[in-house]
Simulated scan of single mutants.
Amino acid sequence: MTIRTARTGTTRGTTRARRTAHRAPLVAALLALAALTATACGADQPPSLFADGKVLVGTKNDQPGTAVVRNYKFSGFDTAVTRQVLKGVGATPDFGIVPSEDRRSVLTDKTKDLVVATYSITVDRMKDLDFAGPYATTYQGIMIRKNDHRIKKPDDVIGKRVCTWPGTTSVTTLESPAYDRIVVYEQPDASTCINDLKVKKTADAVSTDQMILYGFTQENPDLKVVPDITYGSANQYGIAMAKGHREDCLKLRNALRDYLADNAWSQDFATALPSIPKADANWETNFKPRPTTVDSLSCRDRPKT
């Protein structure tokens, strides 16, 4: 019995040794293949937008309150949001001007890393771009001359000439059948529309998002927003980027959540757009996004249902 047991143990030990010897090259080959695969996958991933700490950001230059350039300095709520959120991911913005109609193209052609320019998150835009947001919510409205008492309610706009400009959701909204009795026309930009309203008086009103309109009134005290006139559904402003940077997008989303949860959002909003708290006692409820909305629209190819 002792002899058999010894022989059996020896045979088993030898067999194990041979199996181990045969497996060693196979294991080494598999490990090498895994390393090559990981390297190849890593090479396919684009570098982080925040890798060198400086991020190219497209924003507006002609929207007081949201984004404007004065003495070569960018200011407004969009720029405040950008600085705060990028600070949360360890980066700083390098701002550049982008017109409304070019907001998508500067991202897809890699001219800018991000666009923060009162850019509404829509289902169609989510197909081509990623958004972290919203960082603000607003309805489309109407701005008129302060001494014009003809327009107080939605029906008063019927038959009136309303100016807007390309690249905004405002054009699409007012061109829908529901508003076909409003005479809508386009000018190249917001400044031209405001000139039509103030100087030429060829426009009876200017229409875009109320948040933007309130900003215009801060530098044009002879103009006013009609608070009881809104169009369409709420516009949700997001931080836009090209597809392919989902991890960066999620980092921005998390930084935005922290910003919205802090009192800094309200302070920045009231500082940049003091005309809104003056006109609307419920401005935080009406303009500050809910966390659930941020979750449903951020870093997705379509809204979460």
Rank of each mutant, 00 (worst) to 15 (best):
D52T: 15
D52S: 10
G53Q: 04
G53K: 02
G53F: 00
K54Q: 13
K54F: 09
V55C: 03
V55M: 07
V55R: 04
L56C: 04
L56Y: 03
L56A: 11
L56T: 13
L56M: 12
L56V: 14
V57N: 05
V57E: 10
V57F: 01
V57G: 03
T59I: 04
T59H: 04
T59N: 06
T59M: 06
T59W: 01
K60N: 14
K60A: 15
K60V: 13
N61Q: 09
N61K: 12
N61C: 13
N61Y: 09
N61G: 15
D62R: 08
D62V: 10
Q63I: 11
Q63G: 09
Q63E: 15
P64A: 07
G65S: 05
T66V: 12
T66F: 03
T66I: 10
A67Y: 01
A67C: 08
V68G: 06
V68Y: 09
V68I: 15
V68N: 08
V68F: 13
V69Y: 00
V69H: 03
R70K: 09
R70F: 00
R70S: 15
R70Y: 05
R70W: 00
N71G: 07
N71A: 14
N71E: 15
N71P: 01
Y72C: 07
Y72L: 15
Y72K: 12
K73N: 12
K73E: 14
K73D: 15
F74T: 13
F74Y: 15
F74K: 05
S75H: 02
S75G: 11
G76Y: 00
G76S: 08
G76P: 09
G76D: 08
F77Q: 10
F77R: 12
F77H: 10
D78H: 06
T79R: 00
T79I: 00
T79M: 05
T79V: 12
T79Y: 01
A80D: 15
A80T: 10
A80Q: 14
A80C: 03
V81I: 11
V81K: 09
V81G: 04
T82W: 02
T82Q: 09
T82R: 05
T82N: 08
T82K: 07
R83N: 13
R83D: 15
R83H: 10
Q84Y: 01
Q84W: 02
Q84R: 13
Q84V: 12
V85Q: 10
V85K: 08
V85A: 09
L86G: 09
L86T: 09
L86Q: 06
L86P: 02
L86W: 00
L86C: 06
K87Y: 05
K87G: 11
K87E: 12
G88I: 04
G88N: 03
G88Y: 02
G88T: 08
G88D: 08
G88K: 02
G88W: 03
V89C: 07
V89F: 03
V89W: 03
V89M: 07
V89D: 09
G90F: 00
G90T: 04
